[in-house]
């Protein structure tokens, strides 16, 4: 069956069994390897991506459900030149060890921050349920708080200052 997918802003048509988990379409048909296979049962979160902005464990998500929806993978989250605030914070805190689970965590964290822009520790505990074997949770928590700061809208007085500067540039 032919299915149209909007992946990282690109329109793609693929042909596969509609029940195929989205993970394998992403990894093996579209050759985007940043989304990882960990368990195949939605238990570890290594395959987390965004579908219409929601965090989804793609190993257990049939590709047909994604038809026509906006899919974002780690490759679409940010680039080395323009990293997502979560990626920027992950670099500042030097989070990864082996690194395998990290894209799934960053996708889960980015989705959390969309819903909860300044999460408390308890909200991070409840919202981030992926598995990391190297035990990088301690740095991840710091990085999520840092990403929240980086992502925060500029303070009103700063916004005003920027506006004044913009006006003076225009004059």
């Amino acid at each position: 069956m032919k299915i149209r997918l909007l992946i990282n802003g690109r329109d793609q048509e693929i042909e596969t069994d509609p029940q195929t988990p989205l993970l394998w379409v992403i990894r093996d048909i579209l050759d985007l390897k940043g989304t990882k296979f960990g368990c195949g049962k939605a238990a570890c979160g290594a395959c987390t991506i965004h579908v219409d902005g929601q965090a989804v464990r793609s190993c257990s998500y049939p590709v047909q459900l994604a038809a026509g929806k906006a899919i974002t993978t780690i490759e679409g989250l940010g680039t080395p030149e323009a990293p997502h605030p979560v990626q920027e914070a992950w670099i500042e805190e030097i989070v990864p060890q082996c690194g395998y689970c990290q894209p799934g965590f960053m996708m889960a964290a980015a989705a959390l921050l969309e819903k909860t822009p300044a999460p408390t520790d308890a909200e991070i505990d409840a919202g981030i349920t992926n598995i990391c074997r190297c035990g990088t949770y301690y740095r991840m928590r710091k990085a999520i708080h840092r990403a929240a700061e980086l992502k925060a809208p500029v303070l009103p007085e700063e916004a005003e200052a920027i506006a004044i500067q913009d006006n003076s540039d225009n004059s």
């Binding site: 390897k33 940043g34 989304t35 990882k36 296979f37 993978t73 780690i74 490759e75 940010g78 680039t79 080395p80 990293p83 990626q87 992950w90 670099i91 030097i94 989070v95 990864p96 690194g99 395998y100 990290q102 894209p103 960053m106």
Partner: peptide, 19 residues
């Protein structure tokens, strides 16, 4: 010194055997 594999791991580059 920051890890030399930091960027590859944060950007999700295909560096593992599975990839």
């Amino acid at each position: 010194v920051p890890r030399v594999d930091l960027e590859a791991k944060v950007m999700g580059e295909p560096i593992f055997g599975m990839d």
